[in-house]
Amino acid sequence: MDKREEERLTRLPKVGWKGYAALIFAILFFAGIFASIQQAEWLRAFDFSTLIGKFGNMASEKATFVGMGGVSARGGFLFALSLVPSVMLAVGAVEVLSHFGALTAAQKLMTPLLRPIMDVPGFVGLTLITDMQSTDAGAALTKELYDEKLIDKREQTIIAAWQYSGAGMINNYFAIVGALFSYALVPIVIPLLIIFVLKFFGAVVCRIVLDTVYKGDFAHDDK
């Protein structure tokens, strides 16, 4: 593989202060912290759950346009329609925050942790971050790294373990689970953090199982 190709697959992105600022803002925006500071109510202008807004009430003061007591196809349709704005706002916000480099900043921060935690090379960070956005692109990158002999079968399987549990987590969380955000009793960033941490936990479990139960499989696998 030529040098340029290798550099393309492994290079760490440049992250300016804007990237880290965007990452911090992203966390605060979705964390709901801005909604609860009573001395500074204006901060609510930067809070996701505030910005979803609300529908007007029907004359009964209790029902929205969805009405009350709807069932089956018709009930489901109107209910689903009422969920669309929060998905649009969430995906739009994620797009803007990615623009300012929030994801590349996250990639840079996690790179030094990859070898000690998962026993995979630091450059895998790009593959992992890509998986958080797109299941298909993340999977394709993993295969590419293996085909280019930058990782071996064992590392490939550990990476796949990280990717498989909660693939496409950012997009799926905000776009699909986003429909239920208004019922969440905790800031919506907390489940996302739990998901993120457990992806690493799963990879560590995979690493341990591969190094014990399947130890023989990799004895002659040279990098």
Binding site: A80, L83, V84, V87, M88, L89, A90, V91, G92, A93, V94, E95, V96, A175, I176
Partner: peptide
């Protein structure tokens, strides 16, 4: 933002 919101609409 609009591109993202449009993605959100399509998902919806």
């Amino acid at each position: 933002f609009v591109r993202g919101a449009r993605k959100g609409w399509n998902i919806g």
